[in-house]
């Protein structure tokens, strides 16, 4: 069965306005054993969830504009004042004050370092990345955290320098719009839709 008029959502006056179809029911089918005895049934379902990025929305929007945003604790009274976070944290984990947004694009373009990595052929349902997936966890100078992402060109190695690339053409507005390539990669070698 194909899904027609898949649901879309917008926000108006602080409320979700939905249109189209969000839930599809399908007929059940019986599960039987070799002797034909009834054991159970299938429960098919097709559901579209609605999800807010809340205070992290600027991060996901910025990827489509080839920008990598992080945050920084801006509370001088905090013991960890000045700590920089990516993944982007809306609030400082220590003082819980709202962090200040900072642009890490230039820092990342100077080269982030691969802390660890892994390569897998296995994925779960709904994966959209090309297999094998090369996970990389990258460190930046002066940043307290180690961001997880995926490498789009070449083979990963601990300690290698990588730079970010962004899916600015047809962005998905998810973390998949950010990928990494070895420093010095030619623009012609980037995957379709991605740029530095």
């Amino acid at each position: 069965m194909t899904v027609e008029n898949r649901g879309t959502v917008k926000v108006e006056n602080g409320r979700y306005r939905v249109s189209g179809n969000f839930s599809y029911g399908y007929p059940n089918s019986p599960i039987r054993d070799e002797s034909g005895k009834l054991v159970g049934i299938t429960n098919p379902a097709d559901i579209t969830h609605i999800h807010t990025y809340g205070g992290e929305a600027p991060f996901f929007e910025s990827l489509s504009k080839q920008k990598l945003l992080g945050t920084k604790c801006a509370n001088p009274k905090c013991e960890t004042y000045g700590s920089v976070y990516i993944p982007y944290r809306i609030h400082c984990p220590d003082c819980l004050m709202r962090c200040e947004e900072i642009d890490l694009t230039e820092l990342a373009r100077k080269g982030a370092t691969v802390h660890t990595f892994m390569i897998t052929e296995r994925t779960g349902a709904f994966n959209t990345l090309k297999k094998p997936i090369r996970f990389v966890n990258v460190e930046f100078d002066g940043v307290s955290t180690i961001l997880m992402g995926y490498l789009s060109v070449g083979e990963p190695k601990m300690g290698m320098k990588v730079v970010p690339i962004f899916q600015a053409k047809n962005p998905t507005y998810t973390i998949l719009d950010l990928s990494w390539v070895p420093m010095g990669t030619d623009a012609a070698d980037l995957p379709e839709g991605f740029s530095f």
């Binding site: 994966n127 990345l129 973390i175």
Partner: peptide, 9 residues
């Protein structure tokens, strides 16, 4: 948002 889309694995 930050991990699951990466391969769902």
């Amino acid at each position: 948002d930050w991990e699951t889309p990466l391969g769902h694995i």
